[in-house]
Each structure stands twice: as C-alpha cells, then as structure tokens.
Design a protein around this nucleic acid. Structure first.
Length: 932
RNA sequence: GGGCGGAUAGCUCAGUCGGGAGGGAGAGCGCUGCCCUUACAAGGCAGAGGUCACAGGUUCGAUCCCUGUUCCGCCUACCA
C-alpha cells in the first residue's frame, strides 16, 4: 500500500484550520448528559467580551485544553463550558467612547437605548475572543456558550439576590465606599489597587478655641480635606495632649470650632505629632472614628472628586477659600490650601512621606472614599463555610502554597459593595413605591450622589434619581404590581446594577441551568477543576466557593489550579504602554499554535512567574518540525508487512524503545495528575527528541533498509505501534500536528481526539534492554568523542576495539555488535585490552567501558594528550576523595553498607580506568612525532 | 507593618518536600569545533561552562534538613 508522503517542513496554518473545522463538524467536543462515564468538567474563566486574546489567556486556556483533551481521551464524559463575561464597567466604557466619538453620550441616548446599543456592540464585536480561543485549539463545548447577561444566568442572579436579601445577607445602607471619580461608580475594596507613591506630610496648626495662641499640630497627607474635619483626635494616654480632650480647636480656613476627642484606636502616638484630624466623610478610618464619637459628616467633595461649593458652604468654609478652590480637583486644590495655610502662618512644615494611593483597577484614576447609599453583601456568614471547605480539603488549591493566602483573606473579609452606578449589567431587583418613599427619592444631578450633596442641590438641576438610605425597597424576582404597605402601584426600580463579579460568582452552576435542577447540573456539578490566575483568586474563586456552597450545598469545584503570570523575557509585566507585549495571535501565525501551547505548558512551573521569550517558542516550533520529519521517515519505511509479533520476540532496540515509551507514558500521566504541565512537556520533549529520534530511529535503520528481512517486519511493527502511541500521548499538548500525522499513519478510528490515552502496561517493560542500551550508548558516545578528537569525517569507516570491566557490559557489547558497528560507523573487535594493538590506537574509557580507535592520517596529538591527561587527573582526584572517605572509620562504621559498597565499586572502576589512561598516554607519546 | 515565594551554567529554569533517595550536579536556549551522512541545517555529532546567594548548625557526609543574614519579587494592610 502506498502511504501519503509529507512535505519537508511542517506548515501549521492550513493544518490547524482544517482539523479544527473537522472536530467541530464531528461534534467531538460535545458533552452529554446521557453518558454513563464519569464526568470531567471545567468551566472556563469567562473572558471579558471587550477583550482580545493575550498571552495570559493563551496560557490559561492551553492548560485547560490539555486537561480536557487528556480526560476526554481517557474516556471521561468531559465538558468544557465556555462563555464570556459582560464586564460592566469596561464594556460601558468602550461603548461610551464610541458614543463620544459620535458626539453623543449615554445620557443623551437614555438608558434603554444605551443598553440596546451595548447589545448591538456585543453582537458585532463581542465574539472576537471566542474565535481566538478556537484558534488556540480550545475544545470547548461551543454549543453551550454562555454569557453572564443571558436570560438564564440573569434569572440566577435575581434568584440569588432575592434569597440573600430575604436572609438578611444583602442590605442597603449609606457607607463610605471606594468611588471612582472617572467611572462615576462605587467599587468594591478589591477593585482598588494600592501603589506606594512619594507624597507629603503636612504639619498644620489648629489653634485652641479658648487659647488661640496655643496650637495643636496635626499631621496629614491630605490638607484639603481639613475643610471637612469635624474633630481632632489625640491618644487618651498621651501625656502631651491628654489634657486637651474635651476642649475645642478653631478649624483653620473655616468658621467652625471642632472638638478634641480621645481615641486610642485611631491615634498612633508614635506617628507624626500624635494628633489626627478626623474627616468622617472622606476617610475610612475617620468614618469609623466618627461613628465612635458621634461626629457629623461633612461632604466637601463632589462625585468627580472636586471641591464642592455647596458642601464647602455647609461646612462654613471661609468665602475666600471657597472661591479659591471650588470645583477644583483635589490635586489642584491641595497647593492652594497649602498656600493659604502658609499665608496664615498655620503651616509648620511639610516633609516627604511615602503613601499608598488607591487607584481604580479599570482606569487607574485615584479613587476617593465617598459617602453614598449602596448595596452590600454581608459576607462573614458566607465566608465561614468557604473557609471550612478549603481547610478540610473539599476544595484543593494547587500549588498548596496559596491556601494560607486564601484563608488569611477570607478570615479577614469585609462586606462586599455590590452596587455600581452604571447601566450595563444586572439591574438590581429592588423597587420603591413612590408614595411610600416620597421623602427618600430625590431627583439629583447624577446617580449615586451623596445624600448631603443631593439634598443641597436646587430642584432645577436634579436630573436623575437618588434613593436615600432610608428608602424601603421591595426586593423581588419580578417587578411588583402592588405595594404591600399602601396598595399603590407606582414603582421605581433601583437604577444601580450589580458588580459583574456578582454574576461571575454563580458561573459554575448558573451556566449549568441553576436554579432549575437541570440534567446538566446533576451530571456536571460540582465541576472538577478550575484553572485560573492568581490575580482573580479573591475576585472570583473565593466568591464562587461562597456562592456555590450557599446555593447548591456543594463546592463548585474540587481542584483549583493556579497558574503563574506571564511576563516578558526581562521579567517585566507585559503592557501595551511598555510595548513589550507578545501577541499570541502573531506567535501562532509565525510558529504555529502547537508550538505556542507547548511552550506555555513547558514553562508552567508552579509558583513561579513565566518569563516568555520568543526564542523559546521558536525552539518548540523546531520540536514540532522534528516530529514532522520523524513522521516522514517512518512513512517512508512503513511499506511492507508488519504483522504482530510478541514484544519478547522483537529486537533489542524494539524492546528498549517500548520500555522507554512505557516509562514516558507513566511519567506524563503522573505529571498531569499533579498538574505538572512543565514536567509532562519536558518528558515528552526528552523522549521524542533524544530517545526516539536520536537513538531509536537510528537503531532501526539497518533493518528497515533491508526490506526483505524478517527483522524488518518486526521493526515496522514496532515503529508503527510506538509512533502511533506517541502521537496519542502528545495530542493534548500539540493537538494539531498530532492529528495531522496520526491521520496519515495507519490507524483505527476517525480522529485522534477520541482515541484512548496511553496508560502504562507492564508488558512494555524491558529492564534488560534498558541496561544493554546504557552500555551501547556509553560505547558509541565514547567512539564519537574519539572521532571528533581524531578529526575523522562522520562517514569514515574505522577499526574499533572494545572491552568492559564488567562481564555483563561485555556481554551486551557482544550481543549488540551489529547495532554498535552501525552507530559507530566502524568494525568493532571485542577482545581483552591486553590483546589490542599496542600502536596506532587511541584508547578512551568511560564508566568502565573501554574503546580503541585506530589512528590514521593527520592527528593533533597534543590536544589528544591534553584530553587524556585531564581525564586522568580528574580521575585521580575522585579516586583520592573516595579513598579518603573509605579510610575514615566514622564513614565506614556509620554509613549504610550499600553506600560503602558503591564507593568501593567506583574506586575499582576508576582504578581500572586509570590504568587504561596510563597506557593510553604512554602510547600517545610513542606515536607523537619527536619534538625538537 | 504582616504574610508568602525566589536566589542552582552566559540566559530561562528543573531537581530538595512525598516514586527521581542526604553520598558522583541536570535540561532548554545560547556559545565553541566538526559535518549540507537520502527523516529533519527549524538538522546531526562532539565540547566548554557551576564555591548550587552568604554565615552558622544537625549529620560519618548537606544544593537538599534547621537557624540567621543579604538581595529580588509578589500578595496584603487604616500608620494620618
């Protein structure tokens, strides 16, 4: 039969497209609820619909695909559930930018039209990343593609919200929250990134009310907020200030007097001057201190973090100051305040001070603590079971090192602010009866405005609605029709939407149809493994565990594999502004998808960031090409009978490679069980290149070239068996090339995708063949070293001599003589060293195996001599070291006998080698042309 | 401030815990030399290159176990 021949180099591009289409057409990635096999489920970390594939996605999804393809081939009923995330703030930003370029705004469009516009955008551009995942070879069940804003998932969101509210685990209240003055929305604590920055510490004099010549000096990094101070705190046990408690100070730049309070929580006596200003409306600590001392809260910043004239007037700020700073952003107002304090002689000093500034994780704008009514999840009762699940191992974090990190965070968790003042997202299922909440619903300039700010606005400028914290919401799965209190039917839905992570937290079960008890949910939940990056451990993983336990009573997944961050070759974070981004799409174009996947897998060592350099990818592109050429070779030699013969009756080389293959199969499976993608990849690489190609294919050549021999039949048989198995072993890592080649070699079945994954079997083992191989390799390598030393052409046939210290090694050499002669390109005489010619032979030795090479032609005796002398010297040093140990009574009396015996054996071998090197050296000298 | 991780060849990293043993130090890439030998120059063969961060301790023996130090990352935190 004539087999298809392959091109000389592997061309990934058309191969990839062709097979991916085939796999989809055949429906190989479809999961079923009717199958009886053990399910294996992964839910994808849903990428953001505004996103496009970056190298982090490529890593994340390559690893998931490796797991999924591996389990699928093992016969599991696998489901890889794909989907995307609606990314509230990010997506709204994208569409708003689009509107802006058209000279419009979302306000001009109105809420409903805007949301429609986002859906239109999604229909057009939101599928990009899905297409890119397909290019990566991701074997997701695409028929089940989900989106967090789908009707089903939205229903799950409402269900969860209502139930949590019913249990008192969701509440609404006016709190200080993190506010992004650019996105104009609240953020949760973890959406704020902290970064150390150089700042200044201002020391400011606050004159005592009853003794204006005396000052209390406070230290602050934010002097402009003093306008909203409502107290000054000192430590009650601080002898410098304790007596002042109960008195008042005149607040600089204002007409107010504020009290001095004693507070041991807020004040650190060691820091600054030991006196702290309290601004309850603009600082988290001060907010709490304000609650402790029942202080008023004065809001002086507006929603854009500008000094708000209304608030400033309410805070009795001097007219002159108001005029100087009104509507300035904090960073612009600060120098003005500094200047005014200076002018009035109230500024003692300004010193450099590093401080951690909070920034919006989406837009990097400095966030402001902002007082406003928001929705919160009371998180402690949800966190407790989620802590327990990890503590008792129902959820495993891999690498384990992250467990403590997780537990620490969960034990110290704070209530979660879930309302966002944007339009794109799940609108909160809470309604307000207009007649019952007449005083609590205010028309304001914008949503989410602080209470005082909203109340202070003139009616005319109120465009939208703010719902004060005393409003009474009706939380319900559907819009209410009748107010239970007054019977009215005029309702107003809360305009806020939920944090995107609120819906993501439900992902493992909402995608499977929850709250319905669907067959999917019954079959595939709890899921098996979650593969994710460390950066969303708290954002997402922790919340999924909490919600999963709460609403299904079970953990959402058993294993959480946390992979590293991908950095550039210098270890820098990749970012568009630095221009050091490696674009996976371009990499796939140039090197092939398999090369990219294999690179990422091989570098996924636990607990270490990945420094990705393009040369690595190129290296694995070469690996793909190596496999390709091995396939070409095999296809060239497969013609002819290849009947099954028991392994025992096959050649040494056949038994050896099958034994090594078996070892590799075991190692790859074990590595995958442990999520050691790096180990699995290097085992495959090592075996395929350095055992299969370098040695086995070379060993197989003689018999393959003699087509008529019975040996050829057995070799062809082994060649096919081993290679076909190898392709299956490789497939999860390099799906495309493995399919392409597999389809060209004789096989059963329609696609490698659904073939069984190799598992180790004892009958492939052959310890004796492995031992013989070690001897052969030693001999052949030594001969090659000698050839290089003698400058012989690779093809030159030479006369060789061989001997071994150990009987069994010598026996192996005799038995494998044809192979040895083939690989050494020479005629080998296996006899005792004493019988070797005493002239014109270069003698070399390693590990007790001696080789002699006939010396002909021009030879660089000097370098030969150096080589021999160096080895001789190393040899003697090692002998001395070992003899020293063996002469030490401490060692011989306490070390285990095996170790002592091993040392003795090594000394003996070294001594024999030494004798050979001696004679070799002497001979060389006789061969050397006389000097002078 | 707290917690965690890392330091092994020029570069990137395995190896140490537990089936790679506490006893002779590995890989990939790069580098050097030779070779276009009919699977592969995206290749073959050979080679050079390491006080396993530093200082102590345990041990007959430490890259590995223990303690401390230095440097580098990351996470986390209300030091105004």
């Amino acid at each position: 039969m004539a087999l298809r021949q392959l091109e000389k180099t592997y061309e990934p591009k058309q191969v990839e497209e062709r097979w991916y289409r085939f796999w989809i057409d055949q429906g190989y990635f479809r999961a079923s609820t009717d199958r009886s096999e053990t399910p294996y489920t992964i839910v994808i970390p849903p990428p953001n619909i505004t996103g496009s594939l970056h190298v982090g996605h490529a890593l994340n999804n390559s690893l998931q695909d490796i797991l999924i393809r591996w389990r699928r081939m093992q016969g599991r009923n696998t489901l890889w559930m794909p989907g995307t995330d609606h990314a509230g703030i990010a997506t709204q930003n994208v569409v708003e930018r689009q509107l802006m370029s058209e000279g419009s705004t979302r306000e001009a469009l109105g809420r409903d039209a805007f949301i429609k516009r986002v859906w239109d955008w999604k229909a057009q551009s939101g599928g990009t990343i899905i297409q890119q995942l397909k290019r990566l070879g991701a074997s997701c069940d695409w028929d089940r593609l989900r989106f967090t804003m789908d009707e089903g998932l939205s229903k799950a969101v409402r269900e969860v919200f209502v139930r949590l509210h019913e249990e008192g685990l969701i509440y609404r209240g006016e709190r200080l929250i993190n506010w992004c003055p650019r996105c104009l929305t609240a953020l949760s604590d973890i959406e704020v990134e902290h970064e150390d920055q150089p700042g200044k510490l201002y020391h400011i004099r606050y004159p005592l009310a009853d003794d204006p010549a005396t000052f209390l000096v406070v230290a602050t990094t934010r002097p402009e907020t003093l306008l909203g101070d409502t107290a000054v705190a000192v430590h009650p046990e601080d002898p410098r200030h304790a007596a002042l408690i109960g008195k008042s100070v005149r607040l600089p730049l204002t007409g107010r007097e504020i009290p001095i309070v004693g507070d041991s929580i807020l004040v650190d006596r060691e820091f600054g001057t030991g006196a702290v200003k309290i601004t309850p409306a603009h600082d988290f600590n001060d907010f709490e201190a304000g609650e402790r001392h029942r202080l008023p809260r004065l809001t002086i910043l507006d929603h854009q973090a500008r000094l708000d004239p209304v608030g400033l007037r309410a805070a009795l700020v001097d007219r002159e100051i108001i005029e100087a700073v009104e509507l300035l952003r904090v960073n612009q107002a600060r120098p003005k305040i500094e200047q005014k304090l200076q002018e009035r002689g109230l500024l003692v000093k300004v010193e450099a001070h590093k401080m951690a500034l909070g920034k919006c994780y989406r837009c990097k704008t400095v966030v402001e603590p902002y007082l406003s009514p928001q929705w919160f999840v009371k998180i402690k009762p949800l966190a407790e079971p989620a802590i327990k699940a990890v503590e008792d191992g129902r959820v495993r974090l891999i690498p384990e090192a992250w467990t403590n990190n997780y537990l620490g965070w969960m034990r110290d968790i704070k209530d979660w602010c879930i309302s966002r003042q944007i339009w794109w997202g799940h609108q909160i299922p809470a309604w307000y009866c207009r007649s019952c909440n007449v005083d609590a619903i205010l028309e304001t300039a914008h949503e989410g405005m602080a209470t005082t700010e909203a109340q202070a606005l003139p009616k005319a400028s109120r465009k939208r609605i703010t719902i004060l914290s005393n409003a009474a919401p009706l939380v319900s799965r559907t819009a209410p029709t009748r107010c239970p209190a007054c019977g009215g039917n005029d309702f107003f839905q809360d305009p806020d939407v939920l944090d995107t992570w609120f819906s993501s937290a439900l992902w493992p079960f909402s995608t499977l149809g929850w709250p319905e008890q669907t067959p999917e949910l019954k079959t595939f939940y709890p899921t098996s493994t979650l593969v994710t990056g460390l950066d969303i451990l708290f954002f997402w993983v922790a919340r999924m565990i909490m919600m999963g336990l709460k609403f299904t009573g079970e953990v959402p997944f058993r294993d959480v594999y946390i992979h590293a961050l991908v950095r550039d070759a210098e270890g820098q974070k990749m970012s568009k502004s630095k221009g050091n981004v490696i674009d996976p799409l371009s990499v796939m174009d140039r090197y092939g998808t398999d090369a990219l996947r294999f690179t990422l897998a091989s570098m996924a060592s636990p607990g270490r960031d990945i420094k990705l350099a393009e040369e690595r990818i190129e290296g694995y592109r070469n690996f793909a090409n190596k496999i390709w050429n091995a396939a070409r070779f095999i296809l060239m030699h497969l013609d002819g009978p290849r009947d099954p013969v028991p392994l025992k009756e096959r050649s040494f080389a056949d038994r050896w490679i099958m034994s090594r293959l078996n070892h590799t199969i075991g190692a790859v499976n074990t590595s995958l069980e442990q999520y050691r993608f790096d180990q699995a990849a290097s085992q495959l690489y090592q075996f395929i290149w350095h055992e299969y190609c370098d040695w086995y294919l070379e060993l197989a050549k003689p018999s393959l070239q003699d087509k008529e021999s019975s040996e050829a039949n057995r070799t062809r048989r082994t060649l096919l068996e081993s290679f076909e198995t190898l392709l299956r072993l490789l497939h999860p890592f390099m799906p495309f090339i493995s399919e392409e080649i597999w389809q060209t070699v004789p096989h059963e079945g329609d696609s490698i995708v659904t073939q069984p994954y190799p598992s180790p079997t004892p009958d492939r083992e052959s310890k004796d063949a492995e031992a013989s191989f070690a001897t052969l390799e030693q001999f052949v390598t030594t001969v090659r070293t000698g050839r290089a030393l003698l400058n012989y052409q690779p093809g030159k046939k030479i006369t060789l001599y061989g001997a071994a210290v150990r009987e069994d090694h010598f026996a192996s050499l005799q038995q494998l003589r044809p192979s040895i002669e083939h690989l050494s390109r020479g005629t080998v005489h296996l006899t005792a060293i004493e019988t070797w010619p005493t002239d014109k032979v270069l003698r070399l030795v390693t590990e007790g195996i001696s080789t002699g090479l006939a010396v002909e032609g021009e030879v660089d005796f000097e370098s030969l001599l150096q080589k021999i002398q160096k080895q001789h010297k190393d040899n003697q040093q090692e002998t001395k070291r070992l003899e020293g140990k063996l002469g030490n009574v401490e060692f011989t009396s306490k070390a285990p006998p095996e170790v002592i015996q091993e040392h003795r054996d090594r000394v003996r071998t070294l001594q024999q080698e030494s004798r050979l090197l001696d004679s070799s050296e002497r001979q060389l000298r006789t061969m050397m042309p006389a000097k002078d």
